[in-house]
Design a protein around this nucleic acid. Sequence first.
DNA 1: CTGTTAGCGCTTTCAG
DNA 2: CTGAAAGCGCTAACAG
Lengths: 329, 329
Amino acid sequence: MPTRADVAKLAGVSESTVSYVLSGKRPISEATKKRVQAAIDQAGYKSNYAAAALAGGAPRMVTMMISNLFTTPSSRINGALVDGIVDGVREAGFHSVIWPVSNDDDADVNLLIKSNFSGGVILMNVKENDQRVHLLNRERVPFVVLGRTDVGFKYNYVDRDFENVDRIALSKLKELGHTQIGVLVSDTPIPQHLMTEASQLKMKLKAIDIPNSEAGGEELASIFKKEYRSITGIVSLLDAATIGFVNSAKEFGLSIPKDLSIIGVNMLESQAESTHPTISTVTFDAYEMAKSCGKMMVESIEAGKNNKKKRTELWVGDFVDRGSATHIQ
Amino acid sequence: MPTRADVAKLAGVSESTVSYVLSGKRPISEATKKRVQAAIDQAGYKSNYAAAALAGGAPRMVTMMISNLFTTPSSRINGALVDGIVDGVREAGFHSVIWPVSNDDDADVNLLIKSNFSGGVILMNVKENDQRVHLLNRERVPFVVLGRTDVGFKYNYVDRDFENVDRIALSKLKELGHTQIGVLVSDTPIPQHLMTEASQLKMKLKAIDIPNSEAGGEELASIFKKEYRSITGIVSLLDAATIGFVNSAKEFGLSIPKDLSIIGVNMLESQAESTHPTISTVTFDAYEMAKSCGKMMVESIEAGKNNKKKRTELWVGDFVDRGSATHIQ
DNA sequence: CTGTTAGCGCTTTCAG
DNA sequence: CTGAAAGCGCTAACAG
């Protein structure tokens, strides 16, 4: 295995010069850059991760910990998350790997932490009061949680910003001229922040409490014109019921989106898509979310070096217009 | 972060002594062993992966490369493979991680190889004439393929040993007294090695060529007594057809396993299980297979250090008796 | 813009 | 049974 010394000799420069053309951390003349690059190719040189990690301080590697990766069928959203993290981390100049946690005991986790070849850990699929959060925190390993769980102390995470999503949905409807809004819920009141937001926007919300099933949606459709005559916009927190509603709307003389604008909120991307291809949603871009999670992880690792502590919470939603939210007619 | 030097000071021994109690590579008195262990605990010492890798030569880490991990639904067999590799590798004193390959271009693979933090690569889900095999071979990275693909040169792999599986199936039937054997195939002749093996065991094989569907199996059941009166044992290469056959056998006056012994072969473990809970099979223990793959990987890495080359091919099947292969009556 | 040099923390001879 | 010391290949001051 050729080392940076071999390359240096070949190129007729010093060892550090080789390092610097590789890292770009200091200006190098084009001429030497070329010579070094040629020498690298000729020697078939490959940088040694271990040596770099040793010399550079923390290892430039982040580890994704996904529990139950192989017992639950992987969903599309998981793929987007992994891809997002990989890209975010890579853009920050780190690598990322998945650490297989076959079972739920601590052995694997401990091994990862002990071996300490990883600069930080991204925790996914966190459970309620997840023990791994406690462990990571105790062992002072830099980590970021993709999601949230209540563990009794603060930590870095990236999660969906539900309130902002609601805000986007309502302002979108407002913008389209709707003020009388029905909120599809199931056995729960309208979330407080939705209420607050609505009053700021001078919109009227009316809870429409139905079972979250296709049947529930159909039934709503059957009575909608009678019961909710004044309502022109819908914010739906339900998936299955929305399918039922949309599918049977026409049958009951309700034309969507002509008579009614619908925006689904707080559904997972996959739910939203499977719900109905024509329902507009405020959804989450899982890939982008994961990407910022990756970036945050790296930042957090680098902050740790300088003993700077940072705590970040983050995320917003995106409006996806599929044609069911339209201007009031 | 405490280092081995801190521990040494605390325990009042030399640095190398600490290393040796950790690695167990030379005899240490119980007394100092205890003192060192106490110092390690007290200091909260953790070994540094990067430093160990640097000093020790090749990094003690193997990487699993699984393509399309997140676009295909993960199956149970994949989980078994990953778990097996992890355990096999761990028993050999190495760690293992999954390298996420989101797309099929070479960028991810190159990155892995360049960063060279991994002592070896286990390739899974290989495609025909897989380019990654060429790449790994060219870059002289130690690697093992879990599966097989034709690339025009030899490499280390672990795969199912189909011939041995057939051998096991036939000898099992022979042992039970069966000599007139039907072979369930679909649009293919009986494999050559099955024929060879049968003639050595002085058994008679008869191809039973049917569609591999439940309907195909049912139809076979309906005519079996008439058409294949002399046959007492079945070797099945088909999954769906076997289900259909077994399920409708009784209806056509065929009692399994009383009248007929059935052994499924060359099915994946998952297929075999889903085929029928009472069909005996010669199947593959995916976990064990993967485990030996992990061990082989580590051996291959360590052989590389001493410039010993080894080429290994491996696997056998296991007979799983679920009661449908019984003594001739 | 480039070279010299002191480590990073560990493994492994070599010398007791 | 234990110590001392020489690196592994790289990064990052420090010194031009």
